[in-house]
Design a protein around this nucleic acid. Sequence first.
DNA 1: CGCCAGGCCTGCACGC
DNA 2: TGCGTGCAGGCCTGGC
Length: 272
Amino acid sequence: MPELPEVETTRRGLEPLVRGATVSGVVVRNHSLRQPVPRDIATSLLGQRIDELERRGKYLLFRTVEGTLIVHLGMSGRLWVVEAQTAPAKHDHFDLALANGNVVRYRDPRRFGLVLWQRGDPLEHKLLRDIGPEPFSDAFNTQWLYAQTRTRSGAIKTTLMDSHLVAGVGNIYASEALFRARINPKLPARRLGPARCATLVETVREVLADAIKAGGSSLRDYVNSKGEAGYFQNNFSVYDRAGKPCLVCGGAIRSLVLAQRSTFYCPRCQAR
DNA sequence: CGCCAGGCCTGCACGC
DNA sequence: TGCGTGCAGGCCTGGC
């Protein structure tokens, strides 16, 4: 379940291996992802040079002069580099072969991910157009969060996961950020005052930055021939810790479902 | 064996 | 009317 930190770690691992390289081959073994992989994606990509590997929310953007390969890892996707001739496994749906000898391989058992080609500016793509500010950008700030939550009666945890409000905050880090901010996940978003908005902006950035930092140590796992591991759990304060002691107060972590998503919090530390 | 998480889009219902 | 909002459904497989 790649969240923003995993996507960013993937980006950092792959960037030096793909930047400046020319696409020499494209293999699509299964077009059936969340959206169909475009039939002409090979034609679009062949011969293009990858100038940049960027991230927007949880989308990876392989930019070329003519357009952009957009990749989303969905919930079970992985992207890493294998040696040429490495035999594909069952769910290896897509390969991007580069003239420098590297082969970028996409594996996604549950196929919630995406592999798309967008001519021109990728940020104009329908899926990216309306995404909110990046969590580490200046645009994601107290004023923005406060203004955006005024009309929201839904739970702040659910609101935090709305990509229009802030890009890339998924289920795990929504719970984690609220725990650090000592805010109850069920609190209606509009009831947050400026001070708590300021805290939340900070803790969202903190939990994501910490996870990216932790991912740095397992960076290699994203570019070696295994492509496994590289997931930095075990550092969670509340996520998936129902019934276990709160690391701050020792009380039992509780779980509940909000908007069909599992949610974890400490009822004592996050009383309101 | 059956259930269900997980990201996130789409479609629908609702209220202003 | 139209829009913002909230909620449910759907996709899919591995793991419990």
